[in-house]
Nucleic acid binder design. Structure first.
Ligand SMILES: [Zn+2]
Ligand SMILES: [Zn+2]
Ligand SMILES: [Zn+2]
Ligand SMILES: [Zn+2]
Lengths: 149, 149
DNA sequence: GAATGATATGATACAACATATCATTTTAAA
DNA sequence: TTTAAAATGATATGTTGTATCATATCATTC
């Protein structure tokens, strides 16, 4: 079974366990993000969906489905680019922690990573010194990937 | 002289030295950001400008002026929120390094800080291990400020 | 000071991103 | 099979940002 198919299967399983449904439309949107292997905007997904599945899905539905997929931690939204990317931990067992995103400014590929706890703590200390309190360590960092360096 | 007036004066001086002009409109947009003491969207600035100066400025002009002010490092754009904030180092002599932004999710106040070089390096190491290269360490972090904790 | 070119701003249209609201369809449960 | 909840569709509108061409302002040269 391909990685994509394994992810879909696991996502389906995850949804069942959480008492929610991975409907066909939701599955297809998730599949689109998994296949494309990059971050896409809601409207890019509308186009991709049309090209891939032959029928069109209204933007409103795409947004709703993306909201659902985010709530289930199957998809993440990149706030800095207004794009959505499939979670790279769908097939993992562990609970989903808050992760960080490395975004290639050249080819738009995205890598979801966990930064060292000690580094996050150092960051947190810096922030506390400034009189603020870090709420969410979801960092989105402007990078270049291996291919684009 | 108030902090705001000192910043305007210094910004004007900076522009002269760089062979560009801090025109009245540009000065007024910068003044708006300095006075408001928080991050504002371009359209919020259109409204603020209208309320403050009695005449309206087209959004297109606001965007162009914000671009100009960014190039001169007098204003920063927060990519995660699509808002703009005046630089807190306008009255400093030193060159402007890339800074980090602590954004209060409650009251929208923003603090511009320099995170420890060692922490940034630790971050960079994490990123290199993931096969990416950090291009810009402008981090925008979701926080709570002292008043909102 | 008038002619000229460069810079700055205005006006209009439109593209891209996102939400509000009500209607219809599908699903699950009684 | 009726009913309620959940999911999706359709339509309108709000928000953010850019493209493009016109006009105004400023600086330089003659
Ligand atoms: Zn994830
Ligand atoms: Zn790349
Ligand atoms: Zn600054
Ligand atoms: Zn606050």
């Amino acid at each position: 079974m391909s990685n994509v198919q394994a992810s879909i299967k696991q996502a389906d399983q995850h949804c069942r366990e959480h008492g929610v449904r991975l409907t066909d439309k939701r599955k297809q949107v998730l599949l689109s993000l998994l296949q494309s292997e990059k971050a896409m905007s809601a409207y890019e997904l509308v186009d991709y969906y049309k090209a891939e599945f032959g029928e069109s899905m209204p933007p409103m539905s795409v947004y709703r489905i993306l909201d659902f997929l985010q709530e289930e931690h199957l998809v993440h939204k990149l706030n800095s680019t207004n794009k959505y990317v499939s979670c790279s931990h769908i097939t993992c067992d562990h609970d989903h922690e808050i992760t960080q995103f490395l975004i290639c400014g050249e080819c738009q590929s995205v890598k979801e990573i966990n930064i060292n706890k000690s580094t996050i703590e150092a960051l947190q200390n810096n922030i506390e010194e400034a009189g603020f309190h870090l709420v969410s360590p979801q960092l989105e960092m402007n990078c270049l990937c291996e291919n684009c360096i």
